[in-house]
């Protein structure tokens, strides 16, 4: 592992001295340092974490036990599960559409080349960051307090969360547009609104569509947990079944969620191919 190669003549002789090593010394030290760092972090975490080792030993048994209690899936509540899945789907779709509508003007504010002035730029950015920083479930808690339990609170929560994601990617798309057609429209004497209509929108539409489809796919997953805080969707019966230890119903619900998410992902992929 020592690279003695420096003082070895480059002729075919002296092969006995030569050592080979894959990495340069500097690379090697970085590797050691990173490995050491990870090791220390792991040691610190394990040493300080508040977990009883017996629980860890017991965990596989407990998890297996839960699995046994879950099987076979109980199909008797399938109709109400199906309608809850449809509600989840509606929440995700409506929230995505509303989110897109709201995030377009926000993206316009948050893009450097379209925002009217510095104050509006910061307003746009603050909206995006605060929406992205607060998790859906926390938004849902807030809106359940306002609107009461139900799908409405869920839709607004998902919408609020989506604005940050959609708005950020959309404002980046606006910032990346080609300036040349805009210059031509200015030369034609078009007003600001007409320039947005003809110069900016046609250029950003493909990105907007792709981002919307992506977010719909994410929202489908997000809206499965809204019910846990009372904001509608499949999560509501899931929580209910868990609380009443109806584990065989729980497994049916889990299967239904997988089916919905997989179908949604396939549809999203198909739409993306179709539109692009």
């Amino acid at each position: 592992m020592v690279s003695a190669a420096e003082d070895t003549p480059m002729a075919g002789m002296g092969a006995a001295h030569r050592a080979w090593s894959r990495h340069s010394p500097r690379e090697r030290w970085t590797r050691y340092a990173v490995t050491l760092l990870i090791g220390l972090a792991a040691y610190w975490s394990i040493y300080n974490i508040d977990i009883d080792p017996e629980w860890v030993m017991d965990a596989p048994v407990q998890i297996a036990d839960l699995f046994i209690r879950m099987s076979p899936p109980d199909m008797s509540r399938l109709p109400s599960i199906a309608s809850a899945i449809v509600e989840t789907l509606n929440i995700a779709t409506i929230a995505t559409v509303l989110g897109v509508l709201v995030s377009m003007p926000v993206a316009w504010l948050a893009a450097q080349n379209t925002t009217p002035n510095r104050a509006t730029l910061w307003l746009g950015r603050v909206i995006l960051v605060s929406s992205r920083s607060v998790n859906t479930i926390i938004w849902a808690l807030l809106f359940v307090a306002i609107f009461g339990p139900g799908a409405l609170a869920g839709i607004i929560a998902i919408m609020f969360r989506s604005i940050g994601f959609l708005g950020k990617l959309m404002s980046e798309a606006i910032e990346e547009i080609n300036r040349a057609p805009i210059e031509a429209l200015e030369a034609v004497g078009a007003s600001r609104m007409k320039i947005i209509l003809y110069g900016i929108i046609p250029q950003v539409v493909p990105t907007f569509v792709a981002v919307t489809i992506l977010r719909w796919d994410i929202n489908l997953r997000e809206s499965t947990v809204l019910g846990l805080v009372g904001a509608g969707g499949i999560g509501l019966i899931l929580q209910g079944s868990i609380d009443t230890f109806a584990w065989q119903t729980v497994s049916t619900i889990l299967l239904a969620i997988i089916a919905m998410v997989v179908a949604g992902e396939a549809l999203a992929a198909w739409l993306r191919n179709k539109v692009m």
């Binding site: 839960l66 479930i137 997953r221 997000e222 499965t224 947990v225 846990l228 999560g235 899931l238 929580q239 868990i242 729980v250 889990l254 969620i257 997988i258 998410v261 997989v262």
Partner: peptide, 11 residues
């Protein structure tokens, strides 16, 4: 991938 981490956490 299908399950939101919150659902997995509850289980």
């Amino acid at each position: 991938r299908s399950f939101h981490p919150i659902i997995v956490a509850i289980l």
